[in-house]
Design a binder for these strands. Structure first.
Lengths: 226, 226
DNA sequence: TATAAAAGTTAGACTAGTCTAACAAATATA
DNA sequence: TATATTTGTTAGACTAGTCTAACTTTTATA
């Protein structure tokens, strides 16, 4: 149970976090490839290969030449610790400092690397132990547990189904700003009025307002709870 | 008035801050020497020389070989911006997250490098535009102005003078913890009962409690307002 | 004022993280 | 299954920031 190692560089932390995120994406098999990882981090594959050797040396990942990359338990816990910090800071920025949905990420990318166990725990307490961040993503607990919530994509609902927004799948600025324009936020109730099979678009009712059409791309970017 | 440049590295920021701090210390002449600066930053003089060339290139300092180092106006404003962040974060940690006097500095050293103009200004607003940090040091305003307060060392007071603690000169953990033990904090009233000429020590009354002796070293580490 | 001491600089080397270009292995497909 | 494509690795180079060791300039002092 002595997983979190504080002697990681800024860069190493970013690699671990990327690996963790990729493992969430590829749910069935939590591995990643070198190119995939490099693309995610915005570096060249050669660079990723080098770092991988270092992470392997430190027993944070298992991998062999030309093989897939997998986080060790230590690597995973370290990644989770960073994700925890990231999401707590996002929550702080959104709730206490009036940052908007799409502004929090960039600053949290920096704040997540601050080293101080006390700071993280005090921050969590100050925020009243939030379970989800402003995007609806779960905030890992101090022990590494990650809260869950059952959610489905808006696109999976049938006609006449009612739901509440619980998270965004796409966190791009464009999408988040569109959501703000539609006055959709975490918790907003939505009713599916009609499904247009032709292009997968939906006619929905947002918070009891008048009907509005949204694209399939939109419906596949929003998580809701029935 | 377009002073703050955001393209400074973590290290460059530290050099500018060090130079600014040294210029406060050497009040009469705000210059510094290479060795002095290196010592302050915990690097070797050779390293400081290299960085100086870089800072000169960027017009953040003026200096010539074997000469003294002086911040340019741009350099000074950048230094002040970092100091502002440092002291705002210290205030946040102390007031909102219950950090103790002597714990805030280390974490603020990291937080001061977060790049986001919005963050700093929102933080200042969230803290209600504090003028002084937990150690009583002035927090620079967004425009670079630094609040002042007239303060003297406790050691300068005469017998029977009354005062209030406004800042600490020494910010070492040992001193801060001693202050906590004595239940002295910013704002605590103190009366000088007796000055012992033999060793410069004082007999003082803290917040109306019974008399207590403090050393000359102590009296020279605490700033008060008459 | 000559010289010793202090202060500052240069040259060359190292590490972490990055790149490009060339190559090797694995996989997909004709 | 042979080959083309994709994926991943190696080698060599670069930058920022650091070091040590040797050297130079300034300053303090005998």
């Amino acid at each position: 149970m002595f997983y979190i190692c504080s002697m990681l560089s800024y860069t190493e932390e970013n690699y671990l976090k990327a690996l963790l995120k990729l493992s969430f994406q590829n749910e069935d098999k939590p591995e990643a490839g070198t190119n995939e990882m490099a693309a995610y981090l915005g570096v060249k594959p050669a660079t990723a290969t080098d770092m991988l050797k270092k992470l392997k040396e430190k027993e944070l990942v298992t991998y062999k030449k030309y093989g897939k990359i997998l986080l060790t338990e230590t690597g995973k816990q370290n990644g989770i610790a960073i994700l925890r910090k990231h999401r707590l800071w996002e929550t702080f920025l959104y709730e206490k400092l009036d940052f908007s949905w799409d502004e929090v990420h960039e600053v949290a990318e920096q704040l997540e690397h601050i080293q101080s166990a006390k700071l993280v725990d005090k921050l969590e307490e100050f925020l009243n132990f939030p379970e989800f961040d402003p995007h609806g993503d779960p905030i890992p607990k101090a022990n590494g547990e990650i809260p869950t919530i059952d959610k489905v994509l808006l696109s999976e609902l049938k006609e006449n189904e009612l739901c509440k927004v619980v998270a965004v799948k796409d966190t791009s600025t464009l999408f988040l700003q569109y959501l703000e324009k539609l006055r959709i936020t975490i918790g907003t109730p939505i009713k599916v009025l009609e499904r247009i099979d032709f292009d997968g678009s939906l006619s929905i009712q947002i918070a009891g307002e008048e009907a509005r059409n949204v694209s399939m791309k939109f419906a596949e970017s929003l998580f809701v709870k029935r």
